[in-house]
Design a protein around this nucleic acid. Structure first.
Length: 383
DNA sequence: TGACCTTTGAAGTCC
DNA sequence: GGACTTCAAAGGTCA
Protein backbone atom coordinates (compact mmCIF):
# COMPACT_ATOMS: atom_id res chain seq x y z
CA UNK A 1 0.00 0.00 0.00
CA UNK A 2 1.56 3.24 -1.00
CA UNK A 3 0.86 4.87 2.26
CA UNK A 4 2.74 7.96 1.57
CA UNK A 5 4.12 8.65 4.96
CA UNK A 6 5.70 5.29 5.23
CA UNK A 7 6.97 5.48 1.75
CA UNK A 8 9.85 7.32 0.27
CA UNK A 9 11.92 9.80 2.13
CA UNK A 10 10.93 8.63 5.52
CA UNK A 11 7.93 10.85 5.69
CA UNK A 12 7.55 9.30 9.02
CA UNK A 13 4.90 9.19 11.60
CA UNK A 14 3.45 12.16 13.25
CA UNK A 15 2.48 13.67 9.99
CA UNK A 16 -1.24 13.71 10.07
CA UNK A 17 -1.66 16.08 7.22
CA UNK A 18 -2.30 13.56 4.60
CA UNK A 19 -5.70 13.78 3.14
CA UNK A 20 -8.02 11.17 4.61
CA UNK A 21 -9.34 10.42 1.20
CA UNK A 22 -5.91 9.67 -0.03
CA UNK A 23 -5.27 7.29 2.77
CA UNK A 24 -8.54 5.59 2.26
CA UNK A 25 -7.91 5.30 -1.37
CA UNK A 26 -4.56 3.77 -0.90
CA UNK A 27 -5.90 1.39 1.61
CA UNK A 28 -8.50 0.38 -0.86
CA UNK A 29 -6.15 -0.54 -3.57
CA UNK A 30 -7.43 -3.74 -4.96
CA UNK A 31 -8.66 -4.62 -8.34
CA UNK A 32 -8.73 -1.04 -9.32
CA UNK A 33 -5.08 -0.79 -8.61
CA UNK A 34 -4.44 -3.72 -10.81
CA UNK A 35 -6.45 -2.19 -13.56
CA UNK A 36 -4.63 1.03 -13.16
CA UNK A 37 -1.30 -0.66 -13.25
CA UNK A 38 -2.25 -2.49 -16.37
CA UNK A 39 -3.42 0.71 -17.91
CA UNK A 40 -0.25 2.42 -17.02
CA UNK A 41 1.81 -0.41 -18.33
CA UNK A 42 -0.03 -0.29 -21.59
CA UNK A 43 1.96 2.73 -22.53
CA UNK A 44 1.29 6.19 -23.80
CA UNK A 45 -0.01 5.01 -27.13
CA UNK A 46 -2.87 3.38 -25.37
CA UNK A 47 -3.70 6.51 -23.50
CA UNK A 48 -3.50 8.54 -26.58
CA UNK A 49 -5.69 6.14 -28.43
CA UNK A 50 -8.19 6.20 -25.66
CA UNK A 51 -8.31 9.92 -25.61
CA UNK A 52 -8.53 10.16 -29.32
CA UNK A 53 -11.24 7.60 -29.40
CA UNK A 54 -13.29 9.32 -26.79
CA UNK A 55 -12.84 12.64 -28.41
CA UNK A 56 -13.77 11.44 -31.82
CA UNK A 57 -16.77 9.64 -30.52
CA UNK A 58 -17.90 12.60 -28.60
CA UNK A 59 -17.15 15.35 -30.99
CA UNK A 60 -17.48 14.15 -34.52
CA UNK A 61 -19.65 11.15 -34.50
CA UNK A 62 -17.06 9.58 -36.71
CA UNK A 63 -16.42 6.75 -34.37
CA UNK A 64 -17.02 4.30 -37.12
CA UNK A 65 -13.64 5.02 -38.48
CA UNK A 66 -11.97 5.66 -35.19
CA UNK A 67 -9.95 2.59 -34.66
CA UNK A 68 -8.37 2.41 -31.28
CA UNK A 69 -5.01 0.81 -31.53
CA UNK A 70 -4.16 -1.14 -28.52
CA UNK A 71 -7.62 -1.10 -27.10
CA UNK A 72 -9.37 -3.56 -29.36
CA UNK A 73 -6.33 -5.53 -30.30
CA UNK A 74 -4.89 -5.61 -26.86
CA UNK A 75 -4.23 -8.84 -25.11
CA UNK A 76 -6.87 -8.07 -22.53
CA UNK A 77 -9.47 -8.21 -25.20
CA UNK A 78 -12.80 -6.70 -25.75
CA UNK A 79 -14.02 -6.92 -22.20
CA UNK A 80 -11.47 -4.48 -21.00
CA UNK A 81 -11.98 -2.30 -23.99
CA UNK A 82 -15.64 -2.12 -23.15
CA UNK A 83 -14.82 -1.48 -19.58
CA UNK A 84 -12.54 1.33 -20.49
CA UNK A 85 -15.03 2.74 -22.87
CA UNK A 86 -17.61 2.67 -20.19
CA UNK A 87 -15.25 4.33 -17.81
CA UNK A 88 -14.41 6.95 -20.33
CA UNK A 89 -18.04 7.71 -20.89
CA UNK A 90 -18.61 7.87 -17.22
CA UNK A 91 -15.72 10.16 -16.76
CA UNK A 92 -16.09 12.39 -19.71
CA UNK A 93 -19.66 12.43 -20.80
CA UNK A 94 -19.71 15.97 -21.94
CA UNK A 95 -18.80 17.19 -25.28
CA UNK A 96 -15.54 18.96 -25.42
CA UNK A 97 -15.48 22.55 -26.42
CA UNK A 98 -14.66 23.29 -29.98
CA UNK A 99 -11.32 24.72 -29.13
CA UNK A 100 -10.35 21.62 -27.28
CA UNK A 101 -11.41 19.41 -30.12
CA UNK A 102 -9.48 21.47 -32.56
CA UNK A 103 -6.46 21.34 -30.38
CA UNK A 104 -6.66 17.64 -29.95
CA UNK A 105 -7.11 17.15 -33.62
CA UNK A 106 -3.87 18.92 -34.24
CA UNK A 107 -1.22 16.43 -35.28
CA UNK A 108 1.31 17.78 -32.87
CA UNK A 109 -1.14 17.26 -30.10
CA UNK A 110 -2.17 13.77 -31.04
CA UNK A 111 1.38 12.68 -31.59
CA UNK A 112 2.80 13.83 -28.35
CA UNK A 113 0.09 14.41 -25.91
CA UNK A 114 0.51 11.31 -23.89
CA UNK A 115 4.11 10.69 -24.51
CA UNK A 116 5.41 12.11 -21.35
CA UNK A 117 3.84 12.03 -17.98
CA UNK A 118 7.11 12.02 -16.19
CA UNK A 119 6.79 13.34 -12.76
CA UNK A 120 9.40 15.95 -13.05
CA UNK A 121 8.16 18.26 -10.37
CA UNK A 122 8.67 15.77 -7.65
CA UNK A 123 11.98 14.73 -9.02
CA UNK A 124 13.07 18.27 -9.20
CA UNK A 125 12.12 19.08 -5.69
CA UNK A 126 13.81 16.00 -4.49
CA UNK A 127 16.93 17.30 -6.14
CA UNK A 128 16.83 20.84 -4.99
CA UNK A 129 20.22 21.89 -3.72
CA UNK A 130 20.35 22.70 -0.08
CA UNK A 131 20.38 26.31 0.72
CA UNK A 132 23.88 27.66 0.86
CA UNK A 133 23.13 29.44 4.08
CA UNK A 134 21.46 26.51 5.64
CA UNK A 135 24.11 26.29 8.22
CA UNK A 136 22.81 29.47 9.71
CA UNK A 137 19.46 27.87 10.24
CA UNK A 138 19.02 24.41 11.50
CA UNK A 139 15.55 24.24 10.03
CA UNK A 140 15.09 23.25 6.44
CA UNK A 141 14.51 26.03 4.04
CA UNK A 142 12.18 26.35 1.16
CA UNK A 143 14.28 26.46 -1.95
CA UNK A 144 14.30 30.19 -2.18
CA UNK A 145 17.97 30.49 -2.83
CA UNK A 146 18.73 27.39 -4.65
CA UNK A 147 20.55 27.71 -7.82
CA UNK A 148 19.19 25.80 -10.69
CA UNK A 149 18.99 26.06 -14.38
CA UNK A 150 15.88 26.88 -16.22
CA UNK A 151 15.20 25.17 -19.47
CA UNK A 152 14.60 27.48 -22.30
CA UNK A 153 11.54 25.56 -23.35
CA UNK A 154 9.67 25.70 -20.16
CA UNK A 155 7.87 28.58 -18.60
CA UNK A 156 7.17 31.36 -21.02
CA UNK A 157 6.74 33.87 -18.28
CA UNK A 158 8.81 33.33 -15.26
CA UNK A 159 8.06 35.08 -12.10
CA UNK A 160 10.99 37.01 -10.70
CA UNK A 161 11.11 34.58 -7.86
CA UNK A 162 11.12 31.66 -10.18
CA UNK A 163 13.84 33.26 -12.18
CA UNK A 164 15.69 33.72 -9.02
CA UNK A 165 15.26 30.08 -8.26
CA UNK A 166 16.03 28.88 -11.66
CA UNK A 167 18.61 31.23 -13.02
CA UNK A 168 22.15 30.02 -13.04
CA UNK A 169 23.01 33.42 -11.68
CA UNK A 170 20.04 34.37 -9.66
CA UNK A 171 19.51 37.83 -8.47
CA UNK A 172 20.68 38.04 -4.92
CA UNK A 173 17.78 37.93 -2.61
CA UNK A 174 17.36 40.49 0.09
CA UNK A 175 19.43 39.60 3.05
CA UNK A 176 16.50 39.32 5.35
CA UNK A 177 14.94 36.71 3.17
CA UNK A 178 17.46 34.08 3.98
CA UNK A 179 17.83 35.27 7.49
CA UNK A 180 14.19 35.33 8.38
CA UNK A 181 12.59 32.91 6.09
CA UNK A 182 11.35 30.45 8.63
CA UNK A 183 11.20 31.25 12.25
CA UNK A 184 9.61 28.09 13.44
CA UNK A 185 11.64 24.98 13.18
CA UNK A 186 10.24 22.46 10.84
CA UNK A 187 9.92 19.46 12.94
CA UNK A 188 9.26 16.76 10.49
CA UNK A 189 12.39 15.16 9.20
CA UNK A 190 10.76 14.29 5.93
CA UNK A 191 10.42 17.93 5.15
CA UNK A 192 14.06 18.41 5.73
CA UNK A 193 14.84 15.70 3.35
CA UNK A 194 12.25 16.90 0.98
CA UNK A 195 13.60 20.35 0.60
CA UNK A 196 17.21 19.37 0.68
CA UNK A 197 17.57 18.84 -2.94
CA UNK A 198 20.50 18.41 -5.14
CA UNK A 199 21.50 20.86 -7.76
CA UNK A 200 21.34 20.64 -11.43
CA UNK A 201 17.89 19.30 -11.98
CA UNK A 202 15.83 22.40 -11.77
CA UNK A 203 15.59 22.42 -15.46
CA UNK A 204 13.51 19.31 -15.39
CA UNK A 205 10.68 21.21 -13.93
CA UNK A 206 8.91 23.75 -16.04
CA UNK A 207 6.65 24.70 -13.23
CA UNK A 208 7.83 23.86 -9.86
CA UNK A 209 5.75 23.51 -6.85
CA UNK A 210 2.95 25.89 -6.09
CA UNK A 211 4.06 28.85 -4.15
CA UNK A 212 7.66 28.13 -4.82
CA UNK A 213 6.91 29.50 -8.22
CA UNK A 214 4.65 32.32 -7.28
CA UNK A 215 5.90 35.83 -7.68
CA UNK A 216 8.14 37.04 -4.96
CA UNK A 217 5.94 38.58 -2.42
CA UNK A 218 6.97 40.40 0.62
CA UNK A 219 5.21 39.29 3.67
CA UNK A 220 4.35 42.27 5.73
CA UNK A 221 3.27 42.69 9.24
CA UNK A 222 -0.17 41.43 8.42
CA UNK A 223 0.92 37.89 8.76
CA UNK A 224 1.02 36.60 12.27
CA UNK A 225 4.38 35.53 13.47
CA UNK A 226 6.25 37.25 10.70
CA UNK A 227 7.03 40.78 11.65
CA UNK A 228 9.81 41.02 9.18
CA UNK A 229 9.39 41.22 5.47
CA UNK A 230 9.31 37.67 4.35
CA UNK A 231 8.89 36.77 0.76
CA UNK A 232 6.63 33.91 0.11
CA UNK A 233 4.98 33.00 -3.12
CA UNK A 234 1.80 32.10 -1.36
CA UNK A 235 1.34 35.67 -0.40
CA UNK A 236 -0.26 38.13 -2.71
CA UNK A 237 0.84 41.68 -2.07
CA UNK A 238 -1.54 44.56 -2.34
CA UNK A 239 -2.05 45.55 -5.89
CA UNK A 240 0.08 48.38 -7.11
CA UNK A 241 -3.01 50.13 -8.28
CA UNK A 242 -4.19 50.32 -4.76
CA UNK A 243 -1.38 52.60 -3.86
CA UNK A 244 -2.53 56.14 -3.50
CA UNK A 245 -1.17 59.22 -4.98
CA UNK A 246 -0.25 61.85 -2.42
CA UNK A 247 -3.23 63.91 -3.43
CA UNK A 248 -5.61 61.06 -2.88
CA UNK A 249 -3.95 60.11 0.30
CA UNK A 250 -4.57 63.54 1.72
CA UNK A 251 -8.26 63.07 1.16
CA UNK A 252 -8.46 59.81 2.99
CA UNK A 253 -10.40 59.70 6.14
CA UNK A 254 -9.30 57.61 9.00
CA UNK A 255 -11.99 55.08 8.28
CA UNK A 256 -10.93 54.84 4.72
CA UNK A 257 -7.36 54.46 5.75
CA UNK A 258 -8.29 51.67 8.04
CA UNK A 259 -10.22 49.95 5.36
CA UNK A 260 -7.38 50.38 3.02
CA UNK A 261 -4.95 49.10 5.54
CA UNK A 262 -7.04 46.01 5.82
CA UNK A 263 -7.13 45.71 2.07
CA UNK A 264 -3.39 46.04 1.90
CA UNK A 265 -2.84 43.04 4.02
CA UNK A 266 -1.13 40.48 1.90
CA UNK A 267 -3.16 37.54 0.87
CA UNK A 268 -1.80 34.18 1.75
CA UNK A 269 -2.88 31.85 -0.96
CA UNK A 270 -3.99 28.34 -0.44
CA UNK A 271 -1.38 25.71 -0.94
CA UNK A 272 -1.86 23.87 -4.15
CA UNK A 273 -3.38 20.46 -4.13
CA UNK A 274 -2.01 17.53 -6.04
CA UNK A 275 -3.92 18.24 -9.18
CA UNK A 276 -2.92 21.87 -9.16
CA UNK A 277 0.68 20.87 -8.89
CA UNK A 278 0.20 18.51 -11.75
CA UNK A 279 -1.45 21.20 -13.80
CA UNK A 280 1.31 23.64 -13.10
CA UNK A 281 3.85 21.21 -14.32
CA UNK A 282 2.07 19.89 -17.33
CA UNK A 283 0.31 22.96 -18.62
CA UNK A 284 3.16 24.21 -20.72
CA UNK A 285 3.61 20.80 -22.19
CA UNK A 286 -0.01 20.49 -23.15
CA UNK A 287 0.02 23.94 -24.63
CA UNK A 288 3.03 23.06 -26.70
CA UNK A 289 1.65 19.74 -27.81
CA UNK A 290 -1.91 20.68 -28.45
CA UNK A 291 -1.53 24.24 -29.67
CA UNK A 292 -4.15 25.23 -27.20
CA UNK A 293 -4.17 28.33 -25.16
CA UNK A 294 -7.50 28.33 -23.49
CA UNK A 295 -7.02 27.29 -19.96
CA UNK A 296 -10.45 25.77 -19.75
CA UNK A 297 -9.70 23.42 -22.59
CA UNK A 298 -6.24 22.71 -21.29
CA UNK A 299 -7.61 21.93 -17.92
CA UNK A 300 -9.99 19.45 -19.40
CA UNK A 301 -7.11 17.69 -21.04
CA UNK A 302 -5.13 17.79 -17.86
CA UNK A 303 -8.06 16.40 -15.97
CA UNK A 304 -8.12 13.42 -18.26
CA UNK A 305 -4.43 12.97 -18.09
CA UNK A 306 -4.65 13.14 -14.37
CA UNK A 307 -7.06 10.27 -14.35
CA UNK A 308 -4.85 8.43 -16.78
CA UNK A 309 -1.92 8.64 -14.43
CA UNK A 310 -1.07 5.58 -12.50
CA UNK A 311 -1.69 5.66 -8.81
CA UNK A 312 1.99 5.68 -8.28
CA UNK A 313 2.38 8.79 -10.31
CA UNK A 314 -0.56 10.42 -8.66
CA UNK A 315 0.74 9.46 -5.27
CA UNK A 316 3.84 11.48 -5.90
CA UNK A 317 1.77 14.56 -6.46
CA UNK A 318 -0.34 13.82 -3.44
CA UNK A 319 2.79 13.53 -1.42
CA UNK A 320 4.10 16.76 -2.84
CA UNK A 321 0.86 18.51 -2.05
CA UNK A 322 0.84 17.08 1.42
CA UNK A 323 4.28 18.45 2.07
CA UNK A 324 3.24 21.78 0.71
CA UNK A 325 0.32 21.90 3.06
CA UNK A 326 2.58 20.92 5.87
CA UNK A 327 5.07 23.63 5.14
CA UNK A 328 2.33 26.13 4.57
CA UNK A 329 0.83 25.26 7.90
CA UNK A 330 4.13 25.68 9.60
CA UNK A 331 4.82 28.97 7.94
CA UNK A 332 1.35 30.34 8.61
CA UNK A 333 -0.09 28.46 11.55
CA UNK A 334 -2.92 30.90 11.99
CA UNK A 335 -3.94 30.93 8.40
CA UNK A 336 -7.17 29.41 7.29
CA UNK A 337 -8.64 28.89 3.88
CA UNK A 338 -11.54 30.82 5.18
CA UNK A 339 -9.36 33.92 5.20
CA UNK A 340 -9.61 34.07 1.46
CA UNK A 341 -13.30 33.41 1.27
CA UNK A 342 -15.19 36.13 -0.43
CA UNK A 343 -12.16 37.64 -2.03
CA UNK A 344 -13.23 36.39 -5.38
CA UNK A 345 -16.43 37.94 -6.49
CA UNK A 346 -18.88 35.69 -8.15
CA UNK A 347 -20.61 37.85 -10.65
CA UNK A 348 -23.60 35.97 -11.91
CA UNK A 349 -23.30 32.53 -10.50
CA UNK A 350 -26.80 32.47 -9.15
CA UNK A 351 -28.19 33.64 -12.42
CA UNK A 352 -26.10 31.16 -14.28
CA UNK A 353 -27.05 28.33 -12.03
CA UNK A 354 -30.66 29.27 -12.20
CA UNK A 355 -30.57 28.90 -15.91
CA UNK A 356 -28.80 25.59 -15.67
CA UNK A 357 -30.59 24.00 -12.80
CA UNK A 358 -33.98 25.46 -13.10
CA UNK A 359 -33.57 27.52 -10.02
CA UNK A 360 -33.11 24.70 -7.60
CA UNK A 361 -31.14 25.89 -4.66
CA UNK A 362 -29.08 24.09 -2.12
CA UNK A 363 -29.08 24.33 1.60
CA UNK A 364 -27.20 27.61 1.46
CA UNK A 365 -29.89 29.23 -0.60
CA UNK A 366 -27.50 29.35 -3.48
CA UNK A 367 -27.40 27.36 -6.66
CA UNK A 368 -25.20 24.31 -6.59
CA UNK A 369 -22.47 24.64 -9.09
CA UNK A 370 -22.04 20.99 -9.87
CA UNK A 371 -25.48 19.67 -9.15
CA UNK A 372 -26.03 18.47 -12.69
CA UNK A 373 -22.52 17.22 -13.13
CA UNK A 374 -21.98 13.48 -13.40
CA UNK A 375 -20.59 11.67 -10.44
CA UNK A 376 -16.89 12.33 -10.53
CA UNK A 377 -14.52 9.49 -10.88
CA UNK A 378 -12.48 9.37 -7.72
CA UNK A 379 -9.60 7.06 -8.27
CA UNK A 380 -8.00 8.08 -5.03
CA UNK A 381 -11.04 7.90 -2.87
CA UNK A 382 -13.43 5.32 -1.71
CA UNK A 383 -16.75 5.85 -3.32
C1' DT B 1 -11.77 45.64 -16.03
C1' DG B 2 -12.75 41.59 -13.95
C1' DA B 3 -15.70 37.48 -13.75
C1' DC B 4 -16.24 33.24 -16.28
C1' DC B 5 -14.74 28.86 -17.95
C1' DT B 6 -12.63 24.26 -16.75
C1' DT B 7 -10.31 20.78 -14.00
C1' DT B 8 -9.37 18.22 -9.03
C1' DG B 9 -8.54 18.46 -4.29
C1' DA B 10 -8.55 20.64 0.31
C1' DA B 11 -10.94 22.95 3.56
C1' DG B 12 -14.70 25.47 5.32
C1' DT B 13 -19.80 25.89 6.26
C1' DC B 14 -24.43 24.39 7.07
C1' DC B 15 -27.93 21.19 8.51
C1' DG C 1 -21.22 13.11 8.67
C1' DG C 2 -23.18 14.26 4.30
C1' DA C 3 -23.95 17.86 1.08
C1' DC C 4 -22.40 21.81 -0.56
C1' DT C 5 -19.36 26.01 -1.50
C1' DT C 6 -15.10 28.38 -2.11
C1' DC C 7 -10.49 28.74 -3.50
C1' DA C 8 -6.20 27.36 -5.52
C1' DA C 9 -3.70 28.06 -11.31
C1' DA C 10 -4.13 29.76 -15.89
C1' DG C 11 -5.24 32.52 -19.92
C1' DG C 12 -8.59 33.30 -23.50
C1' DT C 13 -13.29 35.03 -23.69
C1' DC C 14 -16.96 38.05 -22.85
C1' DA C 15 -20.08 41.36 -20.55
Amino acid sequence: MPQLDSGGGGAGGGDDLGAPDELLAFQDEGEEQDDKSRDSAAGPERDLAELKSSLVNESEGAAGGAEVPGAGAGARGEAEALEREHTSQRLFPDKLPESLEDGLKAPECASGMYKDTVYSAFNLLMHYPPHSGAGQHPQPQPPLHNKASQPAHSVPQLSPLYEHFSSPHPTPAPADISQKQVHRPLQTPDLSGFYSLTSGSMGQLPHTVSWFTHPPLMLGSGVPGHPAAIPHPAIIPPSAKQELQPYDRSLKTQAESKVEKEAKKPTIKKPLNAFMLYMKEMRAKVIAECTLKESAAINQILGRRWHALSREEQAKYYELARKERQLHMQLYPGWSARDNYGKKKRRSREKHQESNTGGKRNAFGTYPEKAAAPAPFLPMTVL
